[in-house]
Design a protein around this nucleic acid. Sequence first.
DNA 1: TCAGACATGTAATAAGTTACATGATTAG
DNA 2: CTAATCATGTAACTTATTACATGTCTGA
Lengths: 189, 189
Amino acid sequence: VDVRTVCLGLLTFGEASGYDIKKHVEAGFSQFFATGFGSIYPALASLADEGLASVRPATGAGAGRASRKVYRITPAGRTALRSALASCEPTHRLRSEFMALLYFSQLVPPARLRTVLDTQLARMQGELARMRRTGCPGEQQWPGSVRFVQGLGIALLETTTAYLDSHRHLIETPAAPARAGRNRRRSAR
Amino acid sequence: VDVRTVCLGLLTFGEASGYDIKKHVEAGFSQFFATGFGSIYPALASLADEGLASVRPATGAGAGRASRKVYRITPAGRTALRSALASCEPTHRLRSEFMALLYFSQLVPPARLRTVLDTQLARMQGELARMRRTGCPGEQQWPGSVRFVQGLGIALLETTTAYLDSHRHLIETPAAPARAGRNRRRSAR
DNA sequence: TCAGACATGTAATAAGTTACATGATTAG
DNA sequence: CTAATCATGTAACTTATTACATGTCTGA
């Protein structure tokens, strides 16, 4: 299950351009599945190639924009999507250089550590505020599952910011009580 | 900041083999930075190539094992690590097919959805129990930052399992739970 | 007219995952 | 003696990211 599947899935909520899809993802799903134009456009193109989505140039009132391409899922696309969702192995993996930094925070200059924590907290709090304001932009007709996932996103942001806020002193205080002087080697097992 | 940096960082806790590193990561860091042998061994090899770590075959009592290679960080390695930690941009991204599945759960057969949720919950609860039992295997001499990160890992697992447990009915009940008394959803499958 | 949002795409690169391939040691 | 664990490594493959490259429309 990759970017293609996610694009296909988002198309079940209505037709959309690559740009729309990026916006939708950013609005409430990027926390769980980050993507960029560099993966979305090729994904949509290949979907169209294989007949899983149809393309048409933008029409109608709001479509003055240049060379906008609107994608729509086809019946074959729905079948492929259901099949993919029914058979994929649901992985769940975080790759966080932020956490790696914290894991080795004793080797990070204190000022840098403070900045990194402040920046990340600000980013997360901003994201949190935005998500609480508007679940998703535009229509509220989306299925409950969207709100479900956004709710978990909010809960995770809350947990993370609260934890960082209340525990950062554990890694920011100058030193743990006197580990200097003794150098113990490990002989594990 | 990639697998190489994480390996280098873990070597600051003591010398270790590729196998040790994998075990360490699995013990309490895999939630934030999953890796496999396929990335660890090449990373250690390149680290040694560049003089950032030294290698020696296993020696001493506990080292009867076959062809075990023990890596140790060098002064150059420490410098490189500090430099990497001081300058990297700390990303934090989750790629979850599990969440994608839930996002599109209306298209997933109910039995499959239930299984996926049960499996994921069981995995997370097992992980949680394991982490609460032993923060990390072996020595407890690791810096506070390790416990800090593990604490966040536990908090996130708690939040996620609690949320899934208490909200899964929102995506599992056949009909829309909210308003509109006679709103029947089509039955997938 | 100029900045910023809208809008799409490609090519080179970087990166990790998977599957393969091998073999020793220890506990039962 | 056999299964599980320990232990390492490579090569092919898949994938996404980055940087580049282009162009329109709207409002200030």
